[in-house]
Write a protein that binds this DNA or RNA. Structure first.
Lengths: 409, 409
DNA sequence: AATCGATTGGAAACTAACTTAACAATCACC
DNA sequence: GGTGATTGTTAAGTTAGTTTCCAATCGATT
C-alpha cells in the first residue's frame, strides 16, 4: 500500500553501481520484453516480421510468443492473407490485459480517463468541482472513477494502475505531499491516507506539470529527443524535466519546481504568494501579470489573457508588461539551460502557449544563454495532464506485468 | 580519431528506447563484468568468495575467471593459506593491463599523473606553465606526458586512455571546444586538432570542474549518494552535475555552466567578464569579490583570500562583502535545487572551501530553497582535477577492455 | 487447372551457459 | 597421523537460442 511516484525504475545499475549476476532465464526475460515492445509499437505483426525486427530466430520468437500468450499479454488477432504461402498469424497486445485510470485534480476541474493496455481510451470525462475541502475533493475523484469505470464497462478491480496528476510533489523521504500551493489542505497526511484508501495500492501520484511533460514526451514535441524541459507558465509556474527519456523527480521530488527560483525582481510580486509558491511564481505567474498590468495602468486587465490580447492589439503599455514577462521566463529557461542543457525546451501553459510569446522569450534568450537549444510551444491542450497520467500508468503497468510474467514462467 | 567526452554511454536504452535482443553469450558478458567489478572493489579475492558475492556457482566462476585471465585483465596474485583445505588462488586486476594519463591544463599550472588499471598512481607531476599561446601550451602538455611516462616506466603507446581536464566544454554537435574563458586561443579548431594529433584517438576532453566532480564522486563526498552537484566557486564559477551516478554534460556540453546564470545584480560585476564567462561568473567569482571589497573600501584587498581573512578577523565591511557573496552562491545553489533537486551539494574552489563560507551559504539557502539537501564543503585539494581525469579514464578503459573481451571471446 | 515459388510454422540436432551433485586433493588442528 | 573443512574439477541435467530441414499452404503463372 505504498504510493509510488514517477519514472519507472528499470535501470540496470551501471557498471560500478551493483549489477547482479545473470542466469540464462534473463535472456528469455529480455527477449520477451523486446518482443513486447515491438508488438506495442508495430501493431498486429507476424512472427516472421518480429524475427526480422529483433534479429531472433523464428523458433525463438515462436517460443517466446507462446509464453507471452499463455500469460495473457498478447493474443492472435487475425491472419494476414493476400501473399503467397500460409496465412501468417498476427499478434497484438491483448487490450484487456490491464486498464489504467488517469486523473487530473485541479482547483476548478477534475478530469479523468481510462485506457486499456493497448493505449486506447475507453472513457473520458471532465467535471467542474464543487468541493470545498480535500476530503470532498477526494470523494469527487472517487465518484469520477466509478463513473468512468461504468462507462468503460469494467470493474474498478480490473485497474492495474491508477495515476493521479496533482499540484504539489511527493517527497519519498517524508512520504508526504508537499508544496501543493493553491490546493488548500491537499498537503496534509490525511489527504494522502484517504487517497491511498480510496485508490488502493496501485496509486501513483505525479505532479501535474510532470504528467504534462510525460504527455509531451509521448505525444508532443518530446517524441524525438531524449532530454527536454517542459516549462509551464500559467496560473502557476513549473517544469517537468525529462533526461535520457526518463522523467526526473529529484531526491525530494522538487526537481522542476522552478516557481522557487530566486528571482524576485519582478514588478508584480505578491509577498504572500512568494512564501507559498516561491518567489519566481509570485513574480511571473498569470496573477503577477495581471497585477503588473494594473499597476502600469492598462485598462481591462481582469485576466492575463486580456493583457496579452491588449498587447497584441497594439497597447504599448500592455506590450511592455508582456515583454517583461518574456524576460522573466527567459531567465528561468536560461537557468535550466545552464544547469542541465537539454536538447529542447517546450513552453506550455496559458501564458507559455500564448501567440507570440515563444518568439519574445527566444529573443531574450539569444542574449543571455550560453547556447540556444530548440524552443517550441506545446501544441497539447486541456487533456494533457490526463494523457500524461495514462502514459505513465501504461508504462508502469507494462513494467509490472512483464516482471510478473518473467517470475512466473 | 574522435574526441570523446565524459560519461561512458553504456546505457541499456530503457524500455521503449530500443533495447536489442539477447543471445546466451550476453549472460557470459554480464557475469564477467560483474566478477570484474567485484575483483576491482574487493582486492585479491578467491573463487569461492566471488561465488558467494555474486551468487554464481563455483564452476561458472571458474570458467569466467579463466576467460578473464586469458584476456589479460586479471591474474592470480597469491594463495591464501592458514585455513583448512587447499590454498585458495587469489585473483586481482592485472595492473599492467592498461594505463591512464590524466592531465589538468590551467592558466598557471599544468598537472598530470599516470595510473595503472588497478588505480594506483605510477607517476605524478605539476609544472608551472610558461606558454604564451595555445600551441606552446599543447607542447608543454605533450612534454609533461613524456616525462610522466618515463617516470612510470612505460611507453606512451601503452596508454589505453588519455583524459584532459580543461576549462571550457566540448560541444559534440559542433565538434568544438567552446566557452574556454580565460584560456586564450583554447577554443580554436586548431587547438582541438593539435590535441588530437598529439594524444591520439583515445583522448577524452573533460571540463575541469566536471573532472573535479568525478573525483568528488569517487574519492569525496559523492561516494555514497547517486546524485549530487559539485559547485565550484573560485577564479571562475562552474558546476559538475552527477545524476544517477553519471556525470551529465547536456546536449551542447554546457550543463553546469552556472557562470551563465542570469543573475546580474551583484555589486562587483565587470561587463567585459559578463560577455566572456557569463553574468553570474562576473558577479561572483574571486575577481568580483575583490572588486566589491575594493569598492566598499576594505583595505589590503589584492586577493579574495585576503578579503575572507579580513572578514574572519572581524572587519565588518569585509564581512558584508563575504555575506553578499554567500547570498549569490546560495541563489545559484537554489536554482540547482529547484531544477534537479540532488541528494547533495558539494562546495568547492577557493571560495567554496573557505572556512565559514559553507555555513553562510546554508543560512541563506534555508530562507529561499523549497527543500534543503545535504550541503558539504569539498575536502579535496589541488590534485582533484587530475584525480577526476584518472577516474574517468579508468572507467572508460574498463568499459572498452571488457567490451573487447566480450567480442573476442 | 495444374504447377511453381514463396512463405509459414514447427521439428531435430547442435551450441552456449548455468546449476547441482559428487569427488579427489589438500591443509590446519587435535 | 587422523579428522574435518575447504578448494577446484568433472559429470549430468536444465534453459535458451541457432541452424537446417521439411511439410503444408496459397497466390501467381503457364
Amino acid at each position: 500500500m505504498t504510493v509510488v511516484t514517477g519514472g519507472v525504475a528499470g535501470g540496470v545499475g551501471d557498471g560500478v553501481g551493483g549489477a547482479s549476476a545473470a542466469r540464462p532465464q534473463l535472456i528469455r526475460e529480455i527477449n520477451e520484453r523486446v518482443l513486447l515492445d515491438h508488438i506495442r509499437r508495430s501493431g498486429p505483426i507476424s512472427r516472421t516480421e518480429l524475427a526480422g525486427l529483433t534479429g531472433l530466430s523464428k523458433p525463438t520468437v515462436s517460443a517466446a510468443l507462446s509464453s507471452l500468450e499463455r500469460s495473457g499479454l498478447v493474443h492472435v488477432t487475425g491472419q494476414r492473407t493476400g501473399v503467397p504461402g500460409p496465412a501468417a498469424s498476427l499478434y497484438e497486445v491483448r487490450p484487456e490485459a490491464g486498464y489504467v485510470l488517469g486523473l487530473d485534480v485541479g482547483r476548478e476541474f477534475l478530469r479523468g480517463a481510462i485506457s486499456d493496455l493497448s493505449g486506447s481510451v475507453r472513457a473520458r470525462l471532465s467535471v467542474r468541482t464543487k468541493a470545498g475541502d480535500a476530503m470532498a475533493r477526494i470523494q469527487e475523484l472517487a465518484d469520477l472513477a466509478v463513473t468512468l469505470a461504468t462507462e468503460a464497462g469494467i470493474q474498478l478491480t480490473q485497474l492495474t494502475q491508477t495515476v493521479l496528476g496533482s499540484p504539489g510533489v511527493y517527497d519519498p523521504r517524508l512520504d508526504a505531499l508537499t508544496l501543493t500551493g493553491r490546493l488548500s489542505g491537499w498537503d496534509s497526511p490525511a489527504t494522502l491516507a484517504a487517497l491511498r484508501d480510496r485508490f488502493g495500492s496501485s496509486l501513483m501520484i505525479e505532479n501535474d506539470i510532470d504528467a504534462a511533460a510525460i504527455a509531451e514526451r509521448v505525444h508532443g514535441h518530446g517524441r524525438n529527443v531524449d532530454s527536454f524541459a517542459f516549462v509551464s507558465v500559467g496560473t502557476g509556474i513549473g517544469m517537468g524535466l525529462v533526461l535520457d527519456g526518463k522523467l526526473r523527480h529529484g531526491s525530494h521530488g522538487v526537481a522542476g519546481e522552478i516557481g522557487y527560483l530566486p528571482f524576485t525582481e519582478g514588478s508584480g510580486s505578491d509577498p504572500r504568494d512568494a512564501r507559498k509558491r516561491g518567489g519566481f511564481d509570485a513574480s511571473a505567474s498569470a496573477a503577477a501579470v495581471v497585477r503588473a498590468a494594473r499597476r502600469a495602468g492598462v485598462r481591462g486587465t481582469s485576466t492575463a489573457e486580456k493583457v496579452f490580447a491588449a498587447a497584441a492589439r497594439g497597447d504599448v503599455v500592455a506590450a511592455a508588461v508582456v515583454a517583461e514577462e518574456a524576460l522573466l521566463v527567459a531567465k528561468a529557461v536560461c537557468t535550466v539551460i545552464t544547469v542541465v542543457d537539454p536538447d529542447l525546451i517546450v513552453l506550455g501553459g496559458g501564458i507559455g502557449q500564448a501567440p507570440g510569446f515563444l518568439e519574445a522569450v527566444v529573443k531574450q534568450l539569444r542574449q543571455m544563454a550560453p547556447v540556444l537549444p530548440d524552443v517550441k510551444a506545446s501544441v497539447l491542450g486541456t487533456e494533457t495532464v490526463v494523457a500524461g497520467c495514462l502514459a505513465a500508468g501504461l508504462d508502469r503497468s507494462w513494467q509490472s506485468l512483464v516482471g510478473r510474467t518473467a517470475n512466473s514462467v
